[in-house]
Nucleic acid binder design. Structure first.
Lengths: 212, 212, 212, 212
DNA sequence: AGGTAACCGAGACGGTACGTCCGGTCTTAAG
DNA sequence: CTTAAGACCGGACGTACCGTCTCGGTTACCT
């Protein structure tokens, strides 16, 4: 499909990387508000139209810059392989890893920028921006939970999307409230509590960890 | 203590209201990005310095405008009185009411603006801005959970802050992903699922969710 | 030399004219004090940066606006052609014309604005602003007087610059003192009196006017 | 008529002096444009209303500040006593002194400020502001010329106001063109040239300028 | 002597204008 | 024929200053 043969001068691939890198650098310094297309172009050593030709808005640029960052690039398919057989163990491991990546040095401003980009324009270009960004992770988590249900490790009939929303949303909320430090530490406990309600009823009495 | 004697001309209280109302109006039209100090001043019929004299930044102004809105003003202490005796019932009612207020016509842009204000500047003036804003609600929810634990309706030893983060964060996440419509509908199911893990073990068999 | 090839979008020539015309309009209404860069931009239908890009200060803008006005445009080289052969006749005609142009309807505020621009900032950007503005006229007058000296119609050895200063300065002084009406009426008499001292000595006794 | 007895607290005379002195100080630093009512009040150590209570506008304040300055205070009646008997000698001495005072260190910005105040608002409060300011000097000069005519030292029938305008205007013009240095040096020559046309015809042969 | 009225310094008020930054668009040259 | 870069354009920024008003308090006249 489409023209495989491009006409005219080809785009510089190096410019893309320079622009994204400049955007991440500015995000690290001043957060979402500290990013300006002007500064991005200047720091990347390109003209402003070059930036606008590739990203339609600051929100889109920032989203791409964050999602293509080294730390985020690894998020895309991390949890499938972690199939230990126990859904509780897998989800704990995944959420903990998730939280640790989010709170790694220099990553917090990037995550917040994602939220800012999604929140600043309700009727903006990318209406469900945040969903687009976090969708793959959300779906992967839901898939793992479904597998747990199929394996009889979790009770059926629950709203799995709601559970995934709660787990991911808790991390987001902690970041927004400046409580990032707690995220990784609490991740396992959070999963344990939330999944408790999923256990098949008869097994519930042994589920308390430590003493409960 | 402090100076009881104010010098100079006193501030106009009417201007405060006009500015906040203008801010809310603009938030409704164009979201956080659609608010400019210039437009706020013009719509409120005051000069720009009058705005800057009272709020140091757009983020601070937006935060105040949202929190003093009619719908938000009622949030501050709603859940204490809802003491039906059953923690599950109370929290469900509270979260559902919370979700309904957030998703009432015209309220979504206000909530998103709060997130945008909190997220756009990590090292900004109000570092833990969002916590300041949502703190009272968070604490009220934790207090109700603690009462449930004390009454023996919930298992002890859980991280109540984490649970509250999950419940509130889930709503926030749904808003950011454009899934606001689901928030109110799912609220009760969400509470049920999350609190399931709290039930004291022997009583687990009665916990079956009414609706599933 | 110099780059004949300009890069980037060229400036709008129409904007220049609109800005200058708006400036003259405001000068007519409220004088120099009534001109603001803000109002100029608004009336010209352009943005403020467009004004600042072309003129560095209000003084420079006003100076250009006045000097490019219709009435002033004709001042640049008016007296050379008036070569009737008699220096007294020529200078009288020139000064009268000069005075009449200055005091034509709507012109007085423009001339005063020139003086205000020159006077408000001693160490400003255009230190000898007024000289730059009136220099051509001054030099033309001096040239005509020199020709009169060369033709033996005026006595040699006088400070021609001082004489030109006196003739032009008299008009300026009358404008500043609100005595503009008198300028044109007195112009000829003023020239006659001042030039009297220039006549070659032996002819002085017949110098009463009429024969000049 | 009217109340000679004022009620209430009398105005502080010291404040007047402090305000005028502060105004002169600011004029010296930044010219007319460098004076702001705010800065005047601050430097004088008084409140802004105290300034506005005494002077209605910046132009009026600046005018008073200049005219009550030490150097200008002496201008009011200097030329009457200079009655040497020879009108040429007297006027030369007066104009030279006038020029020297104007161009004394720190005085130029004051004189320019006077011109700026007069020129910035054609239809402003003090329409004939400059005339009010320079009127006494102008009238004194005309009076001396009239005495010269009466004594037979000058020819009758000339427009003495025009001559005075030329002498004073020449100095003003030189100041505005940044040619202040020349003013004092040229003053005598200027007077000599201008008055030449006034001499009664038979005496013309002695008119050769002593210094040229 | 006590009231009262006009002044005082201080400073915040509402608002105009300032000069600058930045988001986007257009024009021309390079590839 | 499409890139790339530079200049241009106008909206909005945050600040300085405008001239006014409101204070608490002082100073003198006038009952």
């Amino acid at each position: 499909m489409s023209e495989t043969t491009r006409r005219g001068r080809p785009r510089s691939a190096a410019a893309d990387q320079a622009i994204l890198e400049a955007t991440r650098s500015l995000l690290g310094s001043g957060g979402y508000a500290g990013v300006s297309m002007e500064a991005v172009a200047a720091e990347a050593g390109v003209g402003k139209p070059t930036v606008y030709r590739r990203w339609a808005s600051k929100a889109a640029l920032v989203a791409d810059a964050v999602l293509t960052s080294e730390a985020f690039g690894a998020w895309e398919q991390p949890e499938e392989p972690a199939g230990s057989g126990d859904v509780g163990h897998d989800v704990k491991a995944w959420l903990r890893a998730h939280a640790e990546r989010m709170t790694a040095p220099g990553q917090i401003p990037l995550v917040l920028a994602l939220a800012a980009a999604a929140a600043e324009s309700p009727g903006g270009a990318g209406e469900p921006l945040y969903r687009r960004l976090t969708g793959p992770r959300h779906r992967a988590l839901v898939a793992r939970l479904e597998a747990g249900v199929a394996a009889g490790q979790l009770r059926a009939g629950r709203d799995l999307d709601a559970v995934a929303d709660a787990l991911i949303g808790a991390l987001l909320y902690q970041l927004l409230t400046g409580n990032a430090a707690a995220s990784a530490a609490r991740a396992e406990d959070l999963v344990e509590t939330v999944l408790e309600g999923f256990r098949p009823a008869p097994l519930a009495e042994t589920a308390g960890r430590g003493r409960g």
